[in-house]
Design a protein around this nucleic acid. Structure first.
Length: 270
DNA sequence: CTTTCGGCCTGTCAGC
DNA sequence: TGCTGACAGGCCGAAA
């Protein structure tokens, strides 16, 4: 699934194609993708024109004339842009039909993603966006330190906590720990202010570099029009040898998520 | 309160 | 070859 840089790439790509398009109709083929009443979702949005697309953390927000809707891609959600002649594939669950006969289809193999109506005026203040922490480049280090230093959870798990910092997913959490040479299992309460400052800084750097490159692709993700453009430079995630010391990279489950690190370069001491 | 765990879904891959 | 179980970029809610 997309993490912040991939969602940002989708946002930018989508904007080029659908701003100004009017929703003629919406077909929902798998009800649970839409939170709340899908009929109401359809009727509310029908006839409105897409004016903008915003992003907060890993959420996309489509802004229309009067309303907005939030989209979370979770693990495998993506948007396909197509014309009406192309038959629906089995994983395209929600089809936005525009008045110019082009279509934007929400595809999601695992059906984890969600669409939800939102208030155009207050979506940032409403759930679920209201509980997100800052994105790394907006973060106040002292505040992040306060959240992290009172927890005994592994730092890698804390990096995945969207209420502390928004936008980091499993891949980037691994990469951030590697770049800061922090062992991902280190409890939050054993990390100094200085190290937290480094973590926040490296997080900003890695995410913004990835945005520049157009996101990271591992297997199923591609955003229309620019698929295949990206070359990933993952240093530890799903890697075999450490690029720094050539030692073997360890894979270990940390709170249920696959975690990769170099035991030599990422010592417990920090 | 904090933390862990199972559920949500389908596909793929390793191992038997 | 076919089957089974583990795992995959995430999040939520129930239970501990």
């Amino acid at each position: 699934m997309p993490e912040l840089p991939e969602v940002e790439t989708v946002r930018r790509t989508l904007k080029n194609f659908i701003i100004g398009k009017k929703i003629f109709d919406i077909q929902v083929h798998y009800d649970k993708i839409v939170e709340g009443d899908s009929h109401q979702f359809i009727e509310t949005l029908k006839g409105q024109t897409i004016r903008d697309i915003d992003r907060v953390g890993k959420y996309l927000i489509f802004i229309l004339d009067k309303d907005a809707f939030i989209s979370h891609l979770r693990m495998e959600g993506k948007y396909n842009l197509t014309d009406a002649f192309k038959p629906l594939n089995k994983h395209e669950h929600v089809n936005f039909i525009f008045s110019d006969h082009s279509e934007m289809r929400y595809q999601d193999t695992r059906k984890f993603g969600r669409l939800k109506l939102a208030s155009k005026d207050s979506y940032r203040l409403d759930l679920p966006l209201s509980k997100l922490g800052p994105e790394p480049w907006n973060a106040d280090v002292e505040q992040i330190y306060q959240s992290i230093h009172k927890s005994r959870l592994p730092i890698k798990t804390l990096l995945l906590d969207q209420t502390i910092l928004a936008g980091i997913g499993n891949i980037y959490a691994n990469e951030i720990c590697f770049r800061t040479k922090i062992n991902p299992t280190t409890p939050g309460n054993r990390i100094s202010r200085k190290r937290i400052a480094e973590l926040v800084d490296i997080s900003s750097q890695i995410l913004s570099e990835a945005i520049k490159q157009g996101g990271t692709t591992i297997h199923s993700f591609d955003s229309n029009g620019i698929s295949g453009l990206f070359q990933v430079n993952l240093q530890v995630h799903q890697q075999k040898n450490c690029p720094a010391c050539q030692g073997t990279i360890i894979k270990k489950m940390i709170n249920g998520r696959g975690s990769y690190y170099c035991p030599h370069c990422q010592k417990k001491r920090s």
